[in-house]
Design a protein around this nucleic acid. Structure first.
Lengths: 253, 253
DNA sequence: GGCGCGATCATGTCTATACAAAGGGGCAAG
DNA sequence: CTTGCCCCTTTGTATAGACATGATCGCGCC
């Protein structure tokens, strides 16, 4: 071993062990030697070994229990990271020119049933809400229809923003950075006004993405994005329980 | 401080700092004190502080650079973990009875253009492939139409399995644990045989999920899953760059 | 034979210390 | 003023040692 790699030792060891697992040399259920033994084998201290093994456990490759030792985990169900981008970026990634057109903007209070839909707490029933609708264009063709409600109690500045220029999603991400969101994705047959605005025949299959964004316990915004099916697809990569995964909207097949 | 929490100290500190960031007390760009100072403030050693800060950097909340110190990261674009489950589990989660019916099974070689579609290396052109088609049922109603190709060079045992009983996705997950996969999700108007098999009118909006699975550099299987739009939706939760996120198929709105 | 309790063992956490590496800042030469 | 070099600050990594925690095994009592 003449080459003394620049990479940190615990990271090398981590990769070596992960390779043993991924390539099948250590099948699920395989019992590893104890930390102290492995540390000796690799010629490092137990703390260093612990760092590698703990990280692998965090990634899901290993299961560690006191007294019982460390074993290779069973394969788990597939999961994938879907990156749900800013629409402007999606359009840019397709090499097209992006444009945004605000269609409607209205400030009002929501009816109780609407608040329930958004999961808002019953206490704050009289919060005012900014309701927006607009179109995202790619090269002059409608790309995505967005309908959005913004809770002015959570984002009071929204009232002062000119959403004919600023895209709501962008602005919210800029001004309220650390939010949590819940998404759901469905296929729908687009109808009525939605079809007309998107310039598609009624009945065309579209992806409907609902996104509810919260900060702490209060809802901030609720968005409904409709993409015509043939112009958009979500993609996601999955690597074995690794964290760094990417994906994006892409053009038609 | 009479209560000496059972939780490890570095984890408590991590949560406290994350709360400061998420709740906006430390905005993006905020410069933290250096490790040694923070360690002193929290009354722990630098190693413990380092563990907390390193973890937060790994989660994406902090950016750490030598000499420059530690700052709160800018918000990044939304991303979400979509868990793409085994179909049987999805059906069970809906509280329905699951069934699988194999419609077709054929062993053959793929045409060059088909191999190209799957991204198979041109060298192994003559690999034999098992092509399957079948239906997943929920309470006797078609739930998902699956079309799948399995590379027998990568999974030779597949030829000996009775896929009228074993569900292909299950079997593959069991016997080839550590794979990587690429997904894409689209909305399509279902037509022809697909519509007939799913017992839906032609033109109904459906979610089409394409999943290509690889092990190392060779493709193992390529699946096309079609779900009628009104019976299925993908859901995903996003928490600020946290790893533990869940999602699943759910029933209609 | 069954139950409970303590011994034992593997991992989990924390500390103090040491040196390495990277990235700025400043100084000096041109 | 620009360029190039050295130094210093801050994080990154590694170590040995210590104690905590939790789970299991097995012994002894009933």
């Amino acid at each position: 071993m003449t080459k003394s790699d620049a990479r940190p030792r615990h990271s090398q060891i981590l990769d070596e062990i992960r390779a043993l697992i991924v390539e099948g040399h250590w099948p699920p259920g395989h019992q590893l030697a104890r930390e102290t033994e492995l540390a000796e084998q690799y010629g490092v201290s137990r703390m260093t070994m612990n760092k590698a093994l703990t990280q692998l456990a965090q990634e899901g490759f290993l299961i560690r229990r006191k007294r019982r030792g460390t074993v290779v985990a069973e394969a788990r169900s597939q999961s994938a990271v879907l990156e749900i981008n800013i629409v402007a970026d999606e359009v840019a990634a397709l090499g097209k020119r992006y444009a945004w057109q605000l269609l409607e903007s209205e400030t009002r209070t929501l009816a109780p049933f609407e608040l329930r839909l958004l999961g808002a707490q019953p206490g704050s029933v009289r919060d005012r809400v900014l309701v927006l609708q607009g179109l995202h264009y790619a090269d002059d063709a409608p790309f995505c229809l967005e309908t959005r409600a913004i809770n002015l109690a959570a984002a009071p500045d929204a009232e002062t923003v000119d959403f004919t220029v600023d895209v709501p999603g962008n602005w919210l991400l800029r001004s309220l950075p650390w939010t949590t969101a819940r998404h759901s994705v469905r296929a729908i047959n687009v109808t009525g006004d939605d079809a007309r605005l998107l310039d598609h025949a009624a009945g065309t299959a579209c992806l409907e993405i609902l996104r509810k964004t919260e900060i702490g316990d209060t809802w901030v915004t609720h968005a409904r994005l409709i993409y015509p099916g043939e112009t958009y697809q979500l993609t996601a990569e999955f690597e074995p329980r690794a964290d760094a995964v990417k994906g994006s909207g892409r053009t038609k097949p």
